[in-house]
Every structure is written in C-alpha cells, then in structure tokens.
C-alpha cells in the first residue's frame, strides 16, 4: 500500500518559473532552461511511490535534487507543478494550518545539521515536537525521556547541544522525530556528518528501531553503501531527474544507465582495495 505518492513533480527556482516550466515540460535540458530563463530546474517530472513501513532511500550526488525532493514531503518547499500525496492528501494544496497539522502529526524530520535548539536542553529538544503540537508538558517530557533512553542518551537529559558530540546530537535529533510518533520520518542525510564508525552504529540502531516501529522512513543519502545497507528500496536522482528505482539488488545488478553504473563500479573498486 502506498503511503507517499509523488506524481510528475517539477520544481523551478527563479522568477520566470512559468516559462521555465513550459520549456522543461517540452523536453528542454536543464542548461537550456537556465540559459533562456535564468531559472534553475530543481526537479523534473519526478514520480514515485513509497510504501507503508519501508525505508525508502533517495540517492544522488549533491545538486541532484534529493534534498529538494524530500522537503516537498512536508511542504518546506512547494512544487512548481505536480502533486505529492500523503495518505491520499495533496501536500501542495494544503494551507498554512493544514501544513502545520501535517508536520505536527504525520511527518517528522531529521536533519543533516541536526537542527537542534541551542538554547534548550537535550530533554527539551527531544520533547520539541510534542510541546509544539500542544501536548501537556509533563507527559511530553516523559515521552522524551523514554526516547532519549532508547537512543542511548540516558543521563544526558540536562545537557545542552553544544555539550554533546556529533553522534549524540543526531541521536537527540532522532529521538525528537521518534517522540513525535508520526507515520512518516524524513531523514535528510541524517548520518552524513558523522564519523564512519558512529555512522555504521547509527545505521544499525535505525534498523533495529525500525524492526519494532514500522515507520515509513524516507532516507536521503549520497552514499551507495548506506543506501544498500538500510534501504528496502532505492531511488536514484540525477540532475533533478529520477533515473532508477528498485530494490538494492536490482540497482547493483541492472544499473539503468552509465551514471548509476559508475556509482556501482566505484563501490566495487573500493571493496577490492
């Protein structure tokens, strides 16, 4: 059953978006559009389907549009055209109140730069989503405490973010998203800023948690290893266009084009050394 459905989404950055959109739809390349309209095509005709309870990885190099795409899922960025359906509701059509409701109850997010509030304690940060949606303070803090313990941060409740290491900060970020208890969690390069060891540890922890939680997780990364390790399905973006979607195995065995093939080959080369 599909939880998230993306239909023909375009995203144009720039003032002459309508004109650029028309050109792009007619098949003009990113460079042509830029030359003619001074607009950047961020996403071009992207369609995907993400099933309930899976970890769906969106992969691509920087500039491929993956972070842009994920921000469409909770309305941080609005599409220039197309629709993003979550449980059948088009996010692009929601008003401010509707968007707030979506973010408070349905979709939470973990950020590459952690996005913690520097003036709040670990506990308050973990409870941020709950407090924001207006739940009672005591109950919220209690929930936050439970989730901090689950991600391994018991005893750090009263610390401030600048007193924590990178890995610990991201655990707070994760606890914050998990405490929100939303069906969907967006993870935008959540582990990319961490040391390789910590990163592997976090990946395992995520998989471990997912076993019991069955969230729909959209995971953004530029690292194929990470994608293969945690993804039950992988989508590959290149220059704002979707190139391939498939199970990890399909990606490895049947790369859809040279771009994907280079990714895969690089990985093989790395393993051989």
């Amino acid at each position: 059953m599909s939880k998230i459905k993306v239909n023909n989404v375009y995203k144009i950055f720039g003032t002459r978006a309508t004109q650029a959109l028309t050109m792009s739809r007619a098949g003009a390349s990113k460079d042509e559009v830029l030359a003619n309209t001074n607009c950047t095509v961020g996403l071009k005709d992207v369609s995907l389907e993400i099933n309930q309870g899976q970890i769906f990885v969106i992969m691509g190099l920087s500039g491929s549009g993956k972070s842009t795409l994920v921000r469409h899922f909770n309305g941080l960025i609005q599409p220039s055209a197309g629709e993003i359906l979550i449980d059948g509701t088009d996010v692009a059509k929601l008003n401010d109140a509707g968007l707030r409701d979506l973010r408070r109850h349905k979709v939470s997010m973990v950020f590459q730069g952690f996005g913690l509030m520097p003036h709040k304690t670990t506990l308050e940060n973990a409870a941020f989503a709950l407090l924001t949606r207006g739940e009672k303070k005591e109950a919220s803090l209690e929930q936050a405490r439970i989730w901090l313990e689950r991600v391994g941060l018991k005893g750090y409740e009263q610390k401030y973010p600048d007193e924590l290491s990178g890995g610990m900060k991201q655990r707070v970020g994760l606890a914050r998203a998990l405490a929100a208890n939303t069906d969907v969690i967006l993870m935008d390069e959540a582990f990319s800023a961490l040391d390789p060891l910590i990163r592997a540890e976090m990946q395992d922890q995520l998989l471990e948690l997912q076993k019991s939680l069955h969230k729909t997780i959209v995971f953004i990364t530029h690292d194929l290893d990470e994608a293969l390790h945690i993804g039950s399905e992988i989508a590959i973006l290149y220059n704002g266009e979707l190139v391939q979607v498939g199970k990890p195995k399909e990606i490895l065995e049947k790369p859809a084009n040279d771009y994907v093939r280079r990714f895969v080959e690089k990985r093989v080369a790395k393993e051989m050394t």
């Binding site: 979506l102 939470s108 950020f111 996005g115 913690l116 989503a129 924001t132």
Partner: peptide, 16 residues
C-alpha cells in the same frame, strides 16, 4: 536558518 527550518518542520506556528 537551519534551526528555524528544523522548528518549522515540526509544525511551529509563527507565534511559537
């Protein structure tokens, strides 16, 4: 801006 985006992602109202 990142801190503000993170807060917005959890559905903060303008007042919050």
């Amino acid at each position: 801006a990142d801190t503000k985006e993170a807060a917005a992602a959890f559905g903060t109202s303008p007042w919050q």
